[in-house]
């Protein structure tokens, strides 16, 4: 291997190395299990929202598909999980979660063909239309879904037959956090793989992708399907942790809020949805204690302000903040990333 080739190999792999910021983020996330037991209910919601936002980031931040209908997958899987538990079809929650994810992924696969072509507006309308159609269906078949009253009488069995859900949300939080972490690891692997690189390329220039031999449509179908599966698992988690599912899981507001969450955190680096979810939930919690009814106003204002400031400027701030956090973390535990940064680390290829 020539020195240049070695440098190239090193640089290509280095992007995927865990940074101090990332390690700190997950340590804090898991530490909250013990440090913030009284906040577990809201943290559960946060973890679910984070997973949901992660699914949107995969298609919007990496593949460039604007969607205002991610709730379609969230809601469908939410109802599936609820019905499965209610009628005892699948009792074990983890299995039910996986099945719900598969159902949502199947729906994502079928509808992915609708978003392959067309402008942003067309995609927006089609994704929105699909979720509204499902909302109408759920409303129409209220004998199954419970309609406006919601799906009642869902009882969720203990996880793996061992861990019973409790009313303080302790079990639920640990469960959701682990699912989020596993899904995140999968997404992280994926975006640093050749497949993930091709998605970024498609977002940048789909025409050129065809000209370097990338089957653009097949890639978009694949990522849309996977993202639908993640969104579905988030929906199933919500049903399982609340033992309830109502029509608003399919609503436009849910998809619109999701966009906001992701925008707060920033798109295209995976942590945007997670950080956005934390900020959003705690902001909601805080504002709700001040003016519960007009929460929406502040959400709207935030959106307007973010756009007026400019998302690229926001992204720059995010990056600076992350770098500062990472420095802080590195210093705090006296840990140096060592010479690997310079490219002299062990070669594993």
């Amino acid at each position: 291997m020539t020195p240049l080739a070695a440098d190239v190999a090193q640089r290509l792999k280095r992007r995927a190395r865990w940074s101090g910021f990332e390690i700190a983020f997950w340590i804090v996330a898991f530490a909250s299990i013990w440090l913030l037991p009284q906040k577990h209910l809201i943290l559960t919601e946060t973890a679910i929202l984070a997973l949901f936002a992660l699914s949107l980031d995969l298609i919007l931040g990496y593949a460039g598909i604007i969607s205002l209908g991610q709730a379609a997958f969230f809601g469908t899987a939410g109802y599936f999980a609820g019905l499965a538990a209610k009628y005892g079809l699948i009792n074990e929650p983890v299995l039910a979660l996986l099945c719900s994810g598969l159902v949502a992924a199947a729906l994502g696969f079928v509808t992915s063909f609708l978003v392959l072509r067309g402008s942003d507006l067309t995609r927006l309308m089609v994704t929105l239309g699909v979720s509204l159609m499902l909302g109408e269906l759920a409303n129409r078949y209220s004998n199954i879904t419970g309609g406006a009253d919601g799906l009642q009488g869902v009882t969720v069995a203990p996880i793996l037959g061992l861990f019973q859900f409790d009313m303080f949300g302790h079990t639920g939080y640990v469960y959701c956090l682990i699912v989020l972490f596993v899904c995140f690891l999968i997404a992280r692997r994926l975006v640093y793989s050749p497949f993930g690189l091709s998605l970024r390329a498609i977002k940048g220039n789909a025409l050129r992708c065809g000209a370097v031999g990338i089957p653009v449509n097949a890639r978009l179908v694949a990522i849309y399907t996977l993202a639908a599966g993640f969104a579905g698992m988030a929906g199933a988690l919500l049903t399982q942790t609340t033992a309830f599912c109502s029509l608003d899981v399919l609503s436009l507001e849910r998809s619109a809020d999701l966009l906001l969450v992701l925008i707060i955190g920033g798109t295209g680096y995976l942590y945007g949805g997670l950080i956005g979810a934390v900020i959003y939930k705690f902001m909601q919690d805080w504002i709700a204690t001040l003016t519960p009814q007009y929460w929406q106003f502040w959400i709207g204002l935030l959106l307007v302000v973010i756009v007026l400031i400019g998302r690229d400027r926001m992204a720059a701030w995010h990056e600076a903040a992350r770098a500062a956090l990472a420095r802080l973390f590195t210093r705090a535990i006296g840990w140096r990333r060592g010479p690997a940064l310079g490219g002299a680390g062990p070669d594993r290829s």
């Binding site: 604007i66 927006l124 619109a256 966009l259 959400i299 007026l308």
Partner: peptide, 9 residues
């Protein structure tokens, strides 16, 4: 989209 949805809210 974000901007105008914000206005709607």
């Amino acid at each position: 989209v974000l901007f105008t949805i914000g206005l709607v809210f």
